[in-house]
Simulated assay, not measured.
Amino acid sequence: MGWWKKKKSRAVVKEQTWDRDQWRGEKILEALIQCCDGKPNSIKFFTADQILKATQKHFCKFVFPNYIFMGNGTLDNHRMILLRKMKGRSPHPPRDICTGPPKDVAISSMVSDHKNFMKLVGCCFEFEYPVIVYYGGERQYSPVDLNKIVSWRRRMKIAEEVATALAYLHVAFPRPFVYRNMGLKNILLDKNGVAKLNDLSYCVSIPKGETHVKLTWAGKDYDYMDNDYIFNRVVSEKTDVFGFGVFMQKLLTGEENFEELCGWKNWREKNKFPKWLSSYMGEGRMGEIVDPKMVLEEEERCLMEAFLVLSERCIGLRGEVPKMVEVAKELRRSLKQGE
């Protein structure tokens, strides 16, 4: 099962993990103080026994990597729950100001009431890999799969909701939070198709009076990183705007097509700089870049062109890079125009 070893008694597990659990608890407190500016947030700490009891010591259905939806798992006043196992997170103190699961829990507690984030219940740090607990309700969650989302309006709606979540991180708190973890894998859809931005463990805050922060480690998902982030490890709000621009282009083209059209694979493997979709914007060439799996209405092609132009503004190819709030507003306007 990965994070519960049957052959060891609970007493042995407790004895072996006490120092680690204490360290994780201290990091949670540090993250709360750093992120929340002293404001209290409700976070419940569950024991391993509580989690195992709630899930009847087994997991009913694997839905997507590192997540398990508890079809009959109940906890906290009999509400359905969704667990996320933080598999792959280093048990050692992390680099920079990214504190992994503690940072994820702290910031999740701050954004929990926003419709485009998961609603946090609490966490359990007694397993080998930390477990974060969300309310599941009656919602069935699934990752974004562009092979199944063939409606352009649905893809635009996902973009608008993700942009809204990023804008919230940038402007809702005394210090902006930069998500810096853009990618299809980190967006969940509930049963109504509402997008939820997830995994906040890479968030960093911009110090008061500053516009950026410099890290000693950039990360590894180069698809969504601008040059200043990759080469200089400088993180600002523009880091998220750039990553979102790439995300928009993948919504337009499909993930596989994006690789072929822009040559990102060649860039990573052969150090050849990628090209952008602007080279395909000549008269009548939009059809060459649109994901062939999508079912389109004729009037939607104009929305696609505006969508592409906005994505290139985010990437920095068309004048000044917009703020995330502006991007969300523009996407909202485009959706209304298409109604």
Rank of each mutant, 00 (worst) to 15 (best):
S109A: 12
K44I: 13
V295A: 08
I230L: 09
V246G: 06
M182A: 01
R139C: 13
P93V: 15
T99H: 15
E297F: 13
A159H: 03
D19I: 15
M225H: 14
E26R: 15
R301N: 07
D104K: 01
E237D: 08
K8V: 02
K8F: 08
C123Q: 00
D37T: 01
R20V: 10
V131E: 01
R285D: 08
M304E: 05
D37R: 11
L75H: 10
K44F: 10
D228R: 15
Y280N: 02
Y135M: 11
G319L: 09
I43S: 04
G71T: 05
T74M: 14
G38M: 03
A172K: 07
K265T: 11
K265A: 02
S151F: 05
Y179I: 02
R268P: 03
S334C: 09
E305D: 02
E312T: 03
V290R: 09
I51S: 00
V213H: 04
V327R: 03
Y67Q: 01
N271L: 02
G2V: 06
A31G: 08
S334K: 09
G73S: 06
V241N: 00
M286E: 15
K329D: 09
I132N: 04
E138M: 11
D19F: 10
I68P: 02
A54C: 12
K185D: 12
A218L: 05
G193V: 12
F173Q: 00
F45V: 11
K115S: 14
K191H: 13
D113E: 09
E299H: 06
S311M: 08
K87V: 15
K185E: 14
L75D: 09
N66R: 11
G183L: 01
N66E: 09
